[in-house]
Every structure is written in C-alpha cells, then in structure tokens.
Design a protein around this nucleic acid. Structure first.
Lengths: 341, 341
DNA sequence: CCAAATTTGATGTACGTAAATCAAAATCTG
DNA sequence: CAGATTTTGATTTACGTACATCAAATTTGG
C-alpha cells in the first residue's frame, strides 16, 4: 500500500507531529531532524494524498483568470469555457474569478496583476499582452510563489510556470504549407488578414507564415498585411477593397478574428475566382464557410482544453506537484471539411 | 458552501443513517422515505464528495486493459502509455492490470471477457475486435453494471459506455482530401497500403478515403489495396513491387502500420518520381520521413490521450458521474513538417 | 391488540492529512 | 549548573463520507 505520514514517522524515528512540521513547513524543527525526515520521505517514496489533504484543509483553490475585453468569437468562446469551469468549481474545489482588462493595454494589466499580488490567489491565468512591464510583474509574482500561467498568448522571456496555448510560429508555418501545397505551384499573390501586429500571437503567425512561403513557395508573394482589428465590418471592407483592386490574389490567410467579414467579402467578390483560403479559429461562421467551400482549411486552438489545462497546471503548481507535460501540450487542430467535430 | 450529507438529513427530516442507506443503496428504507431523501438531494443540489468517499472507502479502481499482442510501433506505444498509467496508479487510486490477447481473434477476446465478468473489475478497456460474439459479451458486461470502453477500435452496435479513439471514417476522408488537394488535379493512380481488411479501423479508413476520392477527385483512381499485415518487411516487398510495375502511381495512402518498410521502398524506388504520401501514426520513422520530404502528411491518434481518457471515463462511470464529453473526444492529429510536437 | 418484522435513529470508528495544544525533553546561555 | 529557550512528542479534533452496531420507533400480520 501507499505509504502514509505514519510510515514516515516510523522510518525517520520521529513523531508524527515532527513529520507534520516538516511536510507543512512549520517552524521549530532542527536542521538535522528535518533532513532525517526528508530522507525518509524520499526513501519510502511518500507522496502526499492530495485528496485527503484538501479534505483536511477544507481547501479550495482561489484562481483568477484575466481576460481581455475583446468582442470577437474566440474570446467569447474562451469566456464561455471559463464560465463552464466556474460551474464545475464546487466539484473541483476551485473558486474562479475572472477579471476583464482592456485588450492590448499593458498598463491596465500591470495594475491588475499588482493588486493580485496583495490578494495572493492560489494561481493566476492571464491572456498576456506582450510587454516588458507585464513580464516584470509576472516574474515578481512567480518569485513570490504565486503560480502563473499564460493563456492563448505568451509572455516573452518571462518566468511564468506554463503557457497554455498553441505554438503560433508553427501555426503560421503550417498555414503556409497548406496554402502552398493546395495551390500546387501556381503563381500569384497572397493576402494576409490579421487583427493587429501589436499582438504577439498574430506577429508570430505571420512570421512563421512568411518564412515558409519565402523559403519553399517562391512563386507566391505576400501582400502587405491587412489589419482588420478583429472586427468583422472592418475586415469586410478592407478585404473587399483588396480583392477589387488586386486581380492576381490567389490565396488568403486570415490569422486573426473577424472572419465573418472576410467570408462575406469572399462571397461577394470571389465567386468567379478560385481562391484558396486558410483561416484561424473554428466558429459557426468559419465552420459553415469550410463546409460550403469558401474556406479550405481552418486552424484552431481548443479554448476548452486551454482553460482546463490552465486550471490543472495551476492546481498542481499550488500543491507543488508535477504535471503530465504531454497532457498539457495544447495542440494545433487542423480542420478540413471532413474532420470537423 | 457545498452541501453535505448532514444537509440532506436536515432537509429531508431524517437521520444521517437513513441518508447513508439511500445514498449507498443499502436495504431497509421504505419507499416513501427513500423518495423524501432523493427529493432533498435534488433540491439542495448535493453532489457526493468523491475524494472524501474514496478516502473513507479506501477505494481503488481495479481496471483491466485488454490489448492485442501486435508487434507494431503503435501498439507498443499504447502499451507504454498503459504502463505509464500504471506508474501513476497509487496517486490515481487505480490498480491497472493488462491482458494480452492474440490480435484479430474474437474467440480469445470473448474468453477473456467472460472470465472478467466473474472478477468484476471497476472497469474494462479493450481494443475491440469487431465481431458479433464480442459485442454480445460486452453488452452482457455492461448490463451487469461493469463499465466498458473500447480503445482505438470500436465495436459495432454495442452498448459500450464510450469509445476512446478517433473517427476512422473521417480520418480516411481527411487523408483523401489532403492527397487530392496536394496533387492539385493531376491524373494518376493511388496505392493504398493497409494492415488487414479484417480490422474495423482499417476498413473504415479505406471506406472514407475511397468515398472522397470517388466523389471529389475523379482524376485519381485507387489501386487494389495492398495488405501488408502491419509488417515492415512485407510492406516493403509489396510496395516496392507495386512501384516497379506501375508507372503511373502518383500518390500513396498508408492507413495501417509497417511504415518502416513503406518508407524504405519509397526511398529505393521513388527518388526520381515525385510521389505524394499520406500515412498514419507518428513514429520515429514516419517523423523522420515527414521531415525529409518522403511523407507529406501524417495522421495520428495520441495513444496517451486515449489511455488517460479511457481511465477517466471508467472511473467516472464506476462512480456514476458525468464525463466532460468535449474533453474525451479523441482528436485526429494532422502533422505537416511544420507542426510536429 | 400483541408479537414479530421492518424501518429508522443514534452513535462510533475509520480513511489520511492538517492543525492546534500542552507536556516533556533536549539544547543553549551565562 | 540553573534557568531560559528551542525542539520534539503525545494527543485531540476536524474534514466528508462509508460502514457497522445497537436501540428505539413504527409498521405489519395474525
């Protein structure tokens, strides 16, 4: 059977109270005694029974999710998933609170994070705005022993414990290869629709995309990026305009949100032309467009997985436990019309 | 706070002992009283604290994994993942036992399953051989209250609680579209390498593949299926032979195992020809082939996810709890050289 | 209506850990 | 070496549930 605290006490030749003091970092244990206990723990392979410990502590994990106040399908979906997690909170012993901050606003994020430092929740998940001042607060929180994971968008060079999101450079590269291969050597121009180049995930997707196009599909050239601010109306206008003016666009890569506008523009302006289109994020609109042939492939990250993974990791870190790395890798989903969920 | 058994007792106006009798289906409770308690449970929204219950019961979940004695990379990987789960068993309160049965042998599977009926483990996961007699035993086990999930390969028309594996028809369709689009309207023949048409997942993959090729890529024709028995040597021989004889093969779909042999044949016979190749299962060999351009896309199912999902579902079913459906969907991974993990 | 049978209540122990209290022992200080 | 201080031990209660026992109350059958 699994060893218990009693077994540690017996193995170390000390009392249960001393074992408890060591396990829970309570004061009043001599260095030598502490080492005796720690050795015993290691030797008999003791692992704390988290369920029993939580029961005894009556513990709940107060977690905070910091989400940007963006009005696009993906963020709405992410919000829904966090709310679903909140609905499960009594079973999972979590007490999840969400905070909304203005999107792409490092100062606001820093302010909120600083306040959380006082509050000391059991863990923080945030959609990071990639800025040095944000990284500095996060590093301080981590140093203070508060588990932090980034969600969807990572924080360059920070000490965050984990990133629950996809590899966006790989996503961009994958989009490029799909588009390149689907176009089969044709010559022409590629339009790229992004939300904003101020966001790290969009920058990275473009970076990966451009690299592969340049290296492996020289017959394709990328037009200047269209920034649609993740807004359907704006995306519609800009894409429709580009399609009207440029006759040699043969492919489109939409790496941000606002796909509803893109799809409308495509249906208006490109019925006669055979465009190859790769877009990000599976929504009602992109799904329908994939099925009717307007879009050829969708790259997706599963918001539900990201949220659940973030929670698992935060709880594990709060308990000082290991995580199953392979389980927490967020995968890039590729959907063709045949493998939609 | 979360309601407890005491709250039920108070709400129903009965004693704790009676609540306990109802909760754990112990005899000696009048029908009316039982209903009073059940109503109270529903009204206050009581959910049993599984952690505390398991602690009290000292419960472990004796689970059985029935795996085929196949000697290919995928099954080895699956085996490794089950062993990894066994290593975690003390933490997860599982006691996992594996049983090996000859592959594609319904009788052997039936025999093992019948014996398990006596033993009554908390749950059974099996890689199903798709046969009516297997379905009948499984249905009986389910009827007897033993949770059963199929793993990797499903059981037609059975009552199994869950299938932890990918949708193989969708996988075949996806392979067809990738191949068709990558070939960009070229005219020619497609070679299909399977393990055996006696296995349901292989049959389904072929079915989906053929359907999409026929419907949407009329310039492509599928050659008679090559059955390589998932054996590298045999696959090598057969594929090399086919490539020598048929000059107009422009694509290959490998839907089973034995890819090491396929890759060798491709490197020997197809350096000059530009073949487009889609294969299943990410292994050391297929990964290397994808990176060096021998293979163009790999479809994969994550054995680790499948095993962990099966365990989660079996435990939940054993406790009569709901599962998060979206979390348990096993996804079809599509790997290009850019998004390898 | 009485005895028997059934149903319900009251109570205690256990699971593995946390946390607290008080006493005892060991160590340190001067 | 006495006294103060620190370290350790012994013991208890609690968390929410399971399970067992015995007594009391209620229902049922004749």
């Amino acid at each position: 059977m699994r060893p218990t605290v009693h077994d540690i006490a017996a193995a170390a030749g000390v009392s249960l109270a001393t074992v408890d003091r060591v396990l829970n970092r309570r004061p009043g244990v001599r260095h030598v005694t502490r080492e005796k206990v720690e050795n015993a723990i290691r030797e008999i392979g003791y692992v704390r029974d988290v369920a029993a410990a939580n029961l005894a502590k009556g513990r709940t994990y107060p977690l905070v999710f910091i989400l940007p106040a963006s009005d696009n399908s993906f963020m709405h979906g992410l919000n829904d998933e966090v709310r679903a997690a909140i609905a499960r909170s009594s079973v999972e012993r979590t007490a999840i609170r969400t905070l909304e901050v203005p999107a792409f606003d490092p100062a606001a994020l820093v302010k909120v994070l600083n306040e959380l430092g006082e509050e000391r929740p059991a863990g923080i998940a945030l959609v990071a705005t990639d800025a040095p001042e944000v990284r500095d607060v996060v590093d301080r929180l981590v140093k203070d022993g508060i588990p932090v994971v980034t969600l969807v968008s990572d924080l360059t060079g920070s000490q965050r414990h984990h990133y629950a999101g996809v590899d966006n450079i790989a996503a961009g590269r994958t989009a490029a290869r799909l588009l390149g291969r689907f176009l089969g050597g044709a010559k022409g121009e590629i339009a790229v629709l992004a939300g904003s180049m101020l966001v790290r995930d969009h920058r990275e997707r473009l970076e990966g995309f451009a690299a592969v196009i340049a290296a492996e599909f020289p017959s394709l050239s990328i037009l200047p990026v269209i920034e649609g601010r993740d807004d359907p109306e704006m995306a519609h206008m800009l894409v429709a305009d580009a399609l009207s003016k440029k006759g040699d666009i043969i492919g489109v890569y939409s790496l941000g949100a606002g796909n509803r506008g893109l799809i409308r523009a495509l249906k208006e302006k490109a019925v006669d032309r055979s465009l190859t289109v790769v877009a990000h994020e599976l929504t009602t609109h992109t799904r329908a467009a994939l099925l009717d042939g307007t879009i050829d492939a969708i790259l997706n990250q599963d918001a539900g997985h990201e949220v659940r993974s973030a929670i698992r990791v935060l709880k594990a870190k709060a308990d000082g436990l290991a995580v199953i790395e392979a389980q927490e890798r967020i995968r890039l989903d590729i959907f063709l019309k045949d493998n939609l969920p």
